[in-house]
Amino acid sequence: MYKSWWKILGAVLVIYSTIAGFLIKTPDLPIIRESIRNLYFHVPMWFSMIVLFSTSVFYSIKYLSSSNPHDDIKAVESVNAGVVFGILGLTTGMIWARFAWGQAWSFDVKQNFAAIAILLYFAYLVLRNAIDEEQKRAKISAIYNIFAFPIMVVLLFVLPRLSDSLHPGDGGNPGFNAYDLDSRMRMVFYPACLGWILIGYWIYTILYRLRVLEKAQR
């Protein structure tokens, strides 16, 4: 957490993927055209969110066995960081949808369920603040978090596949990788994902350390 090599790696990967994302040639598909470049920026937001929520669940489970308050702080702060990435993913998706699907919000299943998934985590953050006693708060929110995570995964990756959706990878639509994520795009897409995941994790560690300092001051 305190080492800096992976922070630099994350920064370099994000910078590389931004430059290459704008300049490298992409397949010219109908309707999406150049907006396919959004793939390098919109999708990594969701991946970062998933990684941050996974760390949160990891620490929630750890908290239940260890009762170490630091594990609870880790769980909350990774959700705090993950929610930001989720909102970014949702809004970038809306901008893209405005031009690819015609409307920013077409009540597509993927959009609806993604919004619900984020609300699920808002509920987690609000619920925590409603409980005054520290240990109780940590325990209840850890249990909530453990249940929220699989529901989020189902909302984002299972249910949209079962009904009609405009989103690639859902409702019988092939994912981008099935027909147009060619090798050139992979060279940008994977580094972009890794880079943004590292940046997201870094932001979480900063939030965590801040919270620990705040706690020490009190």
Binding site: S4, K7, I15, W202, I206, L213
Partner: peptide, 18 residues
């Protein structure tokens, strides 16, 4: 790129202060 570099640099300075 400038925006990105600015934000990343900002993150590094926050890290340093922390």
């Amino acid at each position: 790129l400038l925006i990105l570099l600015g934000l990343l640099l900002f993150l590094f300075t926050i890290e340093k202060r922390l």
